[in-house]
Nucleic acid binder design. Structure first.
Lengths: 150, 150
DNA sequence: TTAATACCCTACTAACTTGATAGAGATTAT
DNA sequence: ATAATCTCTATCAAGTTAGTAGGGTATTAA
């Protein structure tokens, strides 16, 4: 029932690129800001590039940037790409349902189906434009608070 | 984002015992009905016994039976016991939140928090009395259908 | 009493996944 | 040219998963 570090890092990287939308960001900058091991992030970004989420520019002044607008990327797309299916139990999947021959009669499956659908719905609705907006608001509040307290 | 076989087996075993509530069931019977490897199920039941979900009787005519009424056991209790916390990301947990220092400012965390709460709510509400009832109804329909078709 | 039955317990393991690290190579702005 | 940056492949330690193996112990029907 867990998201892996890889998945978490991928989401953080995309969100970082969404916030800095418009220019290419170096892997190292993202890694430092998001507290992700540099070499690990390198691999993840390469994978996200293959997945069509980001593009890159090599050489000096190079870096990564989003392949499309933050509004056009959802959490669900990214999670499914790096982590695989969202469904919490394999017998829910149409393909590869080798897990259980009695899926049709399984009441446990019904519960997991419900949960799977809720999760899918949720992550498919949230775009990185939403996340960016909320993040910036949170940071603004934080700064305001800091200004008062100093 | 997956439930393990162990967790799935544990749920199936408890549901089986709920359906056969009132008498002791041998491991082998449960294993055959639920299609679970015998020796693996043996371990799981032993663990469920330690967790207080089931009791056992040794010797001839021995077997396992529920420690309390199906109504008093929820899916959530069983899942948490065999699989650990339900939350989809570690930074949500109060203890051991070593994953991320910026949890308070994290908008991703908010989404996972929401999902975690939905899952928890769901599995904590579903008791094995509910599951048993639904299962028996499904089987009854199945039989009816079979009777007609023969 | 004794043999059969069934749970009890510990150890082991192959395969896979996770979370990285290492280093050589390709590309580009200046 | 050369420094900066992404590209790509290989490797690896540690942990998890999904079991298997086998002897030990308690209970009870006959």
């Amino acid at each position: 029932m867990k998201i892996t570090f890889k998945g978490d890092y991928a989401l953080k990287a995309i969100l970082d690129l969404a916030i800095h939308h418009g220019r290419a960001e170096r892997i190292e900058s993202i890694a430092k800001r998001q507290d992700i091991p540099f070499k690990f992030l390198e691999q993840i970004l390469l994978s996200l590039k293959k997945g069509g989420f980001v593009r890159s520019k090599r050489g000096r002044d190079g870096g990564y940037y989003l392949a499309r607008a933050p509004k056009q990327i959802t959490m669900g797309q990214v999670i499914r790409y790096v982590e695989g299916p969202i469904e919490p139990i394999s017998c829910i999947l149409k393909k590869g349902g080798t897990h259980c021959d009695f899926a049709a009669q399984c009441v446990l499956r019904d519960v997991f189906l419900d949960i799977g659908q809720y999760i899918a719905d949720k992550v498919d609705r949230v775009t990185f434009a939403d996340l960016k907006e909320k993040q910036l608001k949170k940071l603004a509040k934080e700064n305001k608070y800091l200004n008062y307290s100093i």
